[in-house]
Every structure is written in C-alpha cells, then in structure tokens.
Design a protein around this nucleic acid. Structure first.
Lengths: 157, 157
DNA sequence: TATGAAATACTTCGCCC
DNA sequence: GGGCGAAGTATTTCATA
C-alpha cells in the first residue's frame, strides 16, 4: 500500500516533514538534494495524493485548559459492518474524542478522549458515549501522565 | 495549570496553530487581530515556554510502509516510582513506541506501537517489550482501522 | 508591548533542459 | 521530471511611540 508513485525522495520528504512540519521549502529541498521548485511540486503532489494529511502544532493540553486524557475501551452489541460504521460516525462527531481505533479481540474500539476536567469528562461519558446505540460496555482508564507522545511512524534515523 | 502569562490571544494562537501548523504568520496575525511582528513574538514565546512543543506533518503510515498499529497494555511487577520511571525511560528509547501513557487501574501503561508488518511487530514484542525489566504482562490489540485521528485537544469551534 | 517600514528570505511561476 | 531566474509575498529586525 506504499503508493506506487512514491520514490525515495518522496519518502525523505515525508520523513522530514513529519519530524518538522514548519521546515521551509528551501531547507527541505537542501536536505533531500533538490532545488526548491521541484521540491515544492513534490510536497504539493504528496498533499494532493493524501500522503500528507495535515499539519499541526503539538500544544501542551494543560496550556489550553484540558487536564484530562482518558482511554475508553468500547464493546458493541453487534459487529455488523453497518453497526461499526454507525458507531464510528457517531464518535467522529464528538469533539472530545480525538482518536478512534477499531481493534481485534474482545474490545471493539479504543478511544482517546480529552476533556477539561473530571466533571466534564463524566458528563461526556454518561450523556454522549455510554448511551450511544449498540454500545454494550465502556471501560475507561485515566491517564496519570504521558511520558512519550510522538505522532507518526518510526523514522529510520 | 493554564500558564499564568497565557492570555486570550495566546489561546487563539495555540488553537489556530494546532488546527493548521503551516499557517503563515501574517494569516495567523490577521486571525487573532494583531500585526505580524507582535504575533511572531508571541509564537516564539509560546515555543520557548513549552506551550507549543513541536510541529509535525501527519503522514499516512501506509505511505511510509508501516501497516501495523498496535495498542499494548502493560502491567508491571512494581509500581514504585523508580520502577515506573525506568520503564518509561526504556520505552522512550524504542522508536516503535510512539506513545506511552501511564494509567490508573489494573493496567499500568498503554503504549501505541507502530511497525512495518506483523513479523517486525512480533520481533519487537518478544525481543524488546516483553523482556523489559519489571514487566508482568503485555496484552496487545491490533488496530483493524483508524476512523479518527486528530492530535491535540477539542477546539471551542 | 504594538506598530510601520525596510532588508532579507521564502514561495512560486514560467520557461528551458 | 529537475533546474534557473524573476516576481510576488512573507518573515524578521529595527526604530518609534
């Protein structure tokens, strides 16, 4: 599934931008051994193709007033595709849910939920998540501390 | 814990950069109602203070040849602070581990692990993670698909 | 600490190889 | 596809209030 038209230079570009999303195009070009124009063309093509999905600053959640990060393990009554899809669509509309991963095994989904405080989290849990259609059980674990949080994939570096 | 010197404009800056990490400084300045120079000074100050930790492009893992994302639930023998710290330091050195969160309850840590394929994941599991000091149990769940994956915190939008 | 202008650097286009 | 040069912007510093 590594796109057919992705070559070594594209891979380097993806790796560099994953590591530093604000790198200037000229610096990126220098690192991958191109001049600026073709480098920029490749970046645009990678964005078009969906290889680069977005760019984000990683912000300390506490600085924005969010103190609670919770992992929620959700099991559904039915694992029919339409029901799985319905659940995914539901949580996609909930801003507190930052990630939703469908898993194998007993747990159907793991969600990463971010909330301002315990009270707002509990309100989210009881009014938004647990009463969702098809939900059988929701087990939550509070994050005490996060010691590593790197987006993306391991780099060959 | 929202830093003492963070005002409303800083909050807006954090929100905008979280949403679009490649926004130009002039556009950011326009959105928050400043001119470019003071806006840039604020961004630099936020970076210095650690409110903005880093910038990243979100890359499709499959495009870089990584097809496996696994959540690993790890329990330790001892929860003494020194032992917790030792485990954290160990996984911090493993590039396959992208996230490490310490949880409350029976599970001590949840890790997000990214690997190229099942074989390299199993090698990682048996040679790097399970034999780590103090580890009692490691339960892993393969990600079938990820339907939502947004970094950061919910935005007031 | 914000502003406005000026110097520097980056982005991006057209064209050629 | 990549490279060169030029035009249009953006970034960044400095003087000023």
């Amino acid at each position: 599934m590594a796109g057919p038209n992705i070559d070594d230079i594209d891979m380097q570009i993806l790796g560099e931008l994953q590591q530093d999303g604000r790198m200037t195009n000229v610096e990126l070009a220098r690192k991958v051994g191109l001049t600026a124009p073709p480098c920029l063309r490749r970046v645009r093509a990678l964005e078009e193709a969906g290889a680069i999905k977005s760019y984000h600053a990683v912000v300390d959640p506490a600085m924005l007033g969010y103190t609670i990060t919770v992992f929620a393990m959700v099991s559904l009554k039915s694992q029919a595709e339409a029901d799985l899809k319905a659940f995914q669509d539901h949580v996609a509309s909930l801003p507190e849910v930052r990630e939703c991963h469908m898993l194998n095994g007993e747990i159907d989904f793991i969600l990463k939920v971010v909330a301002r405080d315990l009270q707002s989290f509990q309100q989210f849990l009881t009014s938004k998540l647990t009463p969702a259609p098809n939900v059988v059980s929701v087990k939550t674990s509070l994050t005490i501390r996060t010691s590593k949080n790197q987006p993306g994939v391991p780099l060959p570096v």
